[in-house]
Design a protein around this nucleic acid. Structure first.
Lengths: 107, 107
DNA sequence: TTGACAGGCAACCTTTTGGTTGCATATTGA
DNA sequence: TCAATATGCAACCAAAAGGTTGCCTGTCAA
Protein backbone atom coordinates (compact mmCIF):
# COMPACT_ATOMS: atom_id res chain seq x y z
CA UNK A 1 0.00 0.00 0.00
CA UNK A 2 2.96 2.25 0.60
CA UNK A 3 3.85 2.06 -3.09
CA UNK A 4 0.38 3.28 -4.01
CA UNK A 5 0.48 6.24 -1.62
CA UNK A 6 3.92 7.21 -2.83
CA UNK A 7 2.85 6.92 -6.46
CA UNK A 8 -0.14 9.17 -5.82
CA UNK A 9 2.01 11.83 -4.15
CA UNK A 10 3.08 13.35 -7.46
CA UNK A 11 0.87 15.72 -9.43
CA UNK A 12 2.15 14.55 -12.83
CA UNK A 13 1.37 10.94 -12.00
CA UNK A 14 -2.13 11.84 -10.85
CA UNK A 15 -2.55 13.67 -14.17
CA UNK A 16 -1.47 10.52 -15.99
CA UNK A 17 -4.10 8.49 -14.14
CA UNK A 18 -6.67 11.13 -15.03
CA UNK A 19 -5.67 10.90 -18.65
CA UNK A 20 -5.92 7.10 -18.67
CA UNK A 21 -9.25 7.34 -16.92
CA UNK A 22 -10.55 9.60 -19.69
CA UNK A 23 -9.04 7.55 -22.53
CA UNK A 24 -7.84 4.00 -22.12
CA UNK A 25 -5.12 2.12 -24.00
CA UNK A 26 -2.87 5.10 -24.65
CA UNK A 27 0.71 4.81 -25.81
CA UNK A 28 3.62 6.55 -24.13
CA UNK A 29 3.64 9.16 -26.89
CA UNK A 30 -0.06 9.88 -26.51
CA UNK A 31 0.19 10.26 -22.73
CA UNK A 32 3.18 12.48 -23.23
CA UNK A 33 1.47 14.95 -25.54
CA UNK A 34 -1.65 14.72 -23.41
CA UNK A 35 0.33 16.00 -20.42
CA UNK A 36 2.03 18.79 -22.33
CA UNK A 37 -1.39 20.00 -23.49
CA UNK A 38 -2.28 20.49 -19.85
CA UNK A 39 0.77 22.63 -19.28
CA UNK A 40 2.75 19.85 -17.61
CA UNK A 41 5.47 19.69 -20.25
CA UNK A 42 8.12 17.06 -19.72
CA UNK A 43 10.43 14.86 -21.77
CA UNK A 44 9.28 11.44 -22.94
CA UNK A 45 11.80 9.78 -20.62
CA UNK A 46 10.44 11.57 -17.57
CA UNK A 47 6.91 10.43 -18.40
CA UNK A 48 8.24 6.94 -18.93
CA UNK A 49 9.70 6.94 -15.43
CA UNK A 50 6.43 8.12 -13.94
CA UNK A 51 4.59 5.34 -15.76
CA UNK A 52 7.09 2.81 -14.42
CA UNK A 53 6.33 3.97 -10.89
CA UNK A 54 2.58 3.72 -11.50
CA UNK A 55 3.08 0.27 -12.96
CA UNK A 56 5.08 -0.86 -9.95
CA UNK A 57 2.28 0.33 -7.69
CA UNK A 58 -0.07 -1.74 -9.86
CA UNK A 59 -2.06 1.36 -10.77
CA UNK A 60 -1.31 0.91 -14.45
CA UNK A 61 -1.19 -2.25 -16.55
CA UNK A 62 0.49 -2.45 -19.94
CA UNK A 63 0.39 -4.53 -23.09
CA UNK A 64 2.92 -4.43 -25.88
CA UNK A 65 1.52 -4.19 -29.37
CA UNK A 66 4.21 -4.19 -32.00
CA UNK A 67 6.52 -1.32 -31.39
CA UNK A 68 4.15 0.51 -29.12
CA UNK A 69 3.07 -0.09 -25.53
CA UNK A 70 -0.53 0.41 -24.48
CA UNK A 71 -1.32 1.65 -20.96
CA UNK A 72 -4.43 0.78 -18.99
CA UNK A 73 -5.64 2.25 -15.71
CA UNK A 74 -6.14 -0.24 -12.90
CA UNK A 75 -8.46 1.40 -10.35
CA UNK A 76 -8.34 -1.53 -7.89
CA UNK A 77 -5.54 -0.26 -5.61
CA UNK A 78 -7.31 3.08 -5.29
CA UNK A 79 -10.52 1.36 -4.32
CA UNK A 80 -8.63 -0.68 -1.74
CA UNK A 81 -7.23 2.44 -0.17
CA UNK A 82 -10.70 3.89 -0.04
CA UNK A 83 -12.07 0.79 1.65
CA UNK A 84 -9.26 -0.34 3.92
CA UNK A 85 -7.67 2.94 4.90
CA UNK A 86 -9.93 5.92 4.41
CA UNK A 87 -12.89 4.28 6.12
CA UNK A 88 -11.03 4.32 9.41
CA UNK A 89 -11.03 8.10 9.35
CA UNK A 90 -14.60 8.43 8.19
CA UNK A 91 -15.57 6.69 11.38
CA UNK A 92 -13.51 9.07 13.49
CA UNK A 93 -15.86 10.24 16.16
CA UNK A 94 -16.63 13.92 16.03
CA UNK A 95 -15.87 14.07 19.74
CA UNK A 96 -12.27 14.99 19.15
CA UNK A 97 -13.11 17.99 17.03
CA UNK A 98 -15.79 19.06 19.47
CA UNK A 99 -13.22 18.90 22.25
CA UNK A 100 -10.89 21.02 20.19
CA UNK A 101 -13.60 23.58 19.46
CA UNK A 102 -14.54 23.82 23.13
CA UNK A 103 -10.97 24.36 24.15
CA UNK A 104 -10.50 27.05 21.53
CA UNK A 105 -13.65 28.86 22.57
CA UNK A 106 -12.80 28.79 26.26
CA UNK A 107 -9.57 30.68 25.63
CA UNK B 1 -4.90 18.84 -2.29
CA UNK B 2 -1.35 18.25 -3.34
CA UNK B 3 -0.18 18.95 0.21
CA UNK B 4 -2.51 16.25 1.52
CA UNK B 5 -1.33 13.62 -0.96
CA UNK B 6 2.29 14.42 -0.22
CA UNK B 7 1.68 14.29 3.51
CA UNK B 8 0.05 10.87 3.18
CA UNK B 9 2.97 9.50 1.17
CA UNK B 10 5.03 8.75 4.26
CA UNK B 11 4.48 5.69 6.42
CA UNK B 12 5.50 7.41 9.66
CA UNK B 13 3.02 10.21 9.05
CA UNK B 14 0.23 7.74 8.35
CA UNK B 15 1.15 6.03 11.61
CA UNK B 16 0.85 9.38 13.39
CA UNK B 17 -2.64 9.87 11.96
CA UNK B 18 -3.53 6.36 13.09
CA UNK B 19 -2.29 7.15 16.57
CA UNK B 20 -4.29 10.38 16.73
CA UNK B 21 -7.32 8.54 15.43
CA UNK B 22 -7.02 6.04 18.26
CA UNK B 23 -6.31 8.64 20.94
CA UNK B 24 -6.96 12.32 20.52
CA UNK B 25 -5.23 15.32 22.09
CA UNK B 26 -1.79 13.76 22.33
CA UNK B 27 1.35 15.73 23.03
CA UNK B 28 4.49 15.51 20.93
CA UNK B 29 6.09 13.32 23.56
CA UNK B 30 3.16 10.92 23.64
CA UNK B 31 3.04 10.59 19.86
CA UNK B 32 6.77 10.04 19.89
CA UNK B 33 6.73 7.15 22.32
CA UNK B 34 3.63 5.79 20.62
CA UNK B 35 5.56 5.50 17.36
CA UNK B 36 8.61 3.90 18.94
CA UNK B 37 6.35 1.28 20.50
CA UNK B 38 5.30 0.30 17.00
CA UNK B 39 8.90 -0.17 15.95
CA UNK B 40 9.10 3.16 14.13
CA UNK B 41 11.77 4.64 16.40
CA UNK B 42 12.78 8.19 15.62
CA UNK B 43 14.03 11.28 17.44
CA UNK B 44 11.57 13.78 18.84
CA UNK B 45 12.68 16.37 16.29
CA UNK B 46 11.94 14.07 13.38
CA UNK B 47 8.42 13.44 14.70
CA UNK B 48 8.02 17.17 15.19
CA UNK B 49 8.84 17.76 11.53
CA UNK B 50 6.34 15.14 10.43
CA UNK B 51 3.67 16.78 12.56
CA UNK B 52 4.49 20.15 10.99
CA UNK B 53 3.92 18.66 7.54
CA UNK B 54 0.61 17.13 8.64
CA UNK B 55 -0.37 20.46 10.15
CA UNK B 56 0.43 22.30 6.94
CA UNK B 57 -1.75 19.86 5.04
CA UNK B 58 -4.49 20.64 7.55
CA UNK B 59 -4.65 17.00 8.60
CA UNK B 60 -3.72 17.86 12.18
CA UNK B 61 -4.82 20.78 14.32
CA UNK B 62 -3.01 21.85 17.46
CA UNK B 63 -3.65 23.74 20.66
CA UNK B 64 -1.02 24.95 23.09
CA UNK B 65 -1.65 24.20 26.71
CA UNK B 66 1.05 25.54 28.94
CA UNK B 67 4.35 24.09 27.90
CA UNK B 68 2.78 21.27 25.95
CA UNK B 69 1.08 21.16 22.57
CA UNK B 70 -1.95 19.00 21.98
CA UNK B 71 -2.54 17.42 18.59
CA UNK B 72 -5.92 16.65 17.07
CA UNK B 73 -6.72 14.69 13.93
CA UNK B 74 -8.70 16.56 11.29
CA UNK B 75 -10.28 13.95 9.02
CA UNK B 76 -11.87 16.48 6.66
CA UNK B 77 -9.13 16.62 3.99
CA UNK B 78 -9.12 12.83 3.80
CA UNK B 79 -12.87 12.79 3.33
CA UNK B 80 -12.52 15.39 0.58
CA UNK B 81 -10.02 13.25 -1.26
CA UNK B 82 -12.38 10.33 -0.97
CA UNK B 83 -15.26 12.35 -2.37
CA UNK B 84 -13.66 14.58 -4.96
CA UNK B 85 -10.84 12.43 -6.23
CA UNK B 86 -11.34 8.75 -5.57
CA UNK B 87 -14.90 8.75 -6.81
CA UNK B 88 -13.68 9.52 -10.32
CA UNK B 89 -11.90 6.19 -10.39
CA UNK B 90 -14.68 4.25 -8.78
CA UNK B 91 -16.79 5.21 -11.74
CA UNK B 92 -14.15 4.00 -14.20
CA UNK B 93 -15.98 1.75 -16.54
CA UNK B 94 -14.89 -1.85 -16.42
CA UNK B 95 -14.66 -1.78 -20.20
CA UNK B 96 -11.02 -0.84 -20.13
CA UNK B 97 -10.04 -3.79 -18.02
CA UNK B 98 -12.21 -6.10 -20.11
CA UNK B 99 -10.42 -4.82 -23.21
CA UNK B 100 -7.12 -5.54 -21.56
CA UNK B 101 -8.17 -9.03 -20.55
CA UNK B 102 -9.37 -9.83 -24.06
CA UNK B 103 -6.16 -8.68 -25.58
CA UNK B 104 -4.11 -10.72 -23.15
CA UNK B 105 -6.15 -13.84 -23.81
CA UNK B 106 -5.96 -13.50 -27.55
CA UNK B 107 -2.16 -13.67 -27.48
C1' DT C 1 16.48 -3.12 -47.05
C1' DT C 2 16.52 0.94 -45.02
C1' DG C 3 14.89 5.11 -42.91
C1' DA C 4 11.60 6.71 -39.70
C1' DC C 5 9.13 5.86 -35.58
C1' DA C 6 8.21 4.04 -30.66
C1' DG C 7 10.27 3.00 -26.87
C1' DG C 8 14.21 1.35 -23.41
C1' DC C 9 18.60 2.02 -20.84
C1' DA C 10 22.08 4.40 -18.39
C1' DA C 11 24.72 8.18 -16.73
C1' DC C 12 24.38 12.36 -14.75
C1' DC C 13 22.61 16.52 -12.20
C1' DT C 14 19.84 19.29 -8.87
C1' DT C 15 16.45 19.71 -5.42
C1' DT C 16 13.72 17.76 -1.92
C1' DT C 17 13.11 14.71 1.86
C1' DG C 18 13.85 12.42 6.11
C1' DG C 19 16.72 12.35 9.66
C1' DT C 20 20.30 13.81 13.12
C1' DT C 21 22.85 16.73 16.66
C1' DG C 22 23.23 20.78 19.47
C1' DC C 23 21.49 24.57 21.59
C1' DA C 24 17.71 27.92 23.02
C1' DT C 25 13.24 28.99 25.11
C1' DA C 26 9.33 28.66 28.03
C1' DT C 27 6.63 26.48 31.64
C1' DT C 28 6.00 23.98 35.87
C1' DG C 29 6.50 22.29 40.53
C1' DA C 30 9.15 21.73 44.70
C1' DT D 1 14.10 30.56 42.68
C1' DC D 2 15.75 26.82 40.09
C1' DA D 3 16.00 22.32 38.14
C1' DA D 4 13.36 19.40 35.38
C1' DT D 5 10.22 19.07 31.59
C1' DA D 6 8.20 20.10 26.85
C1' DT D 7 8.99 21.99 22.89
C1' DG D 8 11.22 25.09 19.16
C1' DC D 9 14.96 26.46 15.98
C1' DA D 10 18.94 25.98 12.96
C1' DA D 11 22.68 23.80 10.80
C1' DC D 12 24.02 19.94 8.73
C1' DC D 13 23.98 15.32 6.17
C1' DA D 14 22.85 11.26 3.27
C1' DA D 15 19.71 9.34 0.34
C1' DA D 16 15.90 9.51 -2.74
C1' DA D 17 13.13 11.87 -6.22
C1' DG D 18 12.43 14.23 -10.43
C1' DG D 19 14.33 15.51 -14.50
C1' DT D 20 17.62 15.83 -18.53
C1' DT D 21 20.77 14.26 -22.40
C1' DG D 22 22.66 10.75 -25.31
C1' DC D 23 22.57 6.54 -27.33
C1' DC D 24 20.73 1.80 -28.33
C1' DT D 25 17.08 -1.59 -29.82
C1' DG D 26 13.17 -3.21 -32.09
C1' DT D 27 9.35 -2.67 -35.50
C1' DC D 28 6.93 -0.91 -39.43
C1' DA D 29 6.28 0.66 -44.12
C1' DA D 30 7.81 2.21 -48.57
Amino acid sequence: MDLVFRALADESRRALLDSLSAKSAQTLGELCSGLSQEGVAMTRQAVSKHLAILEEANLVATVKRGREKLHYLNPVPIAEIANRWIRKFERTRVDALVDLKKRLESE
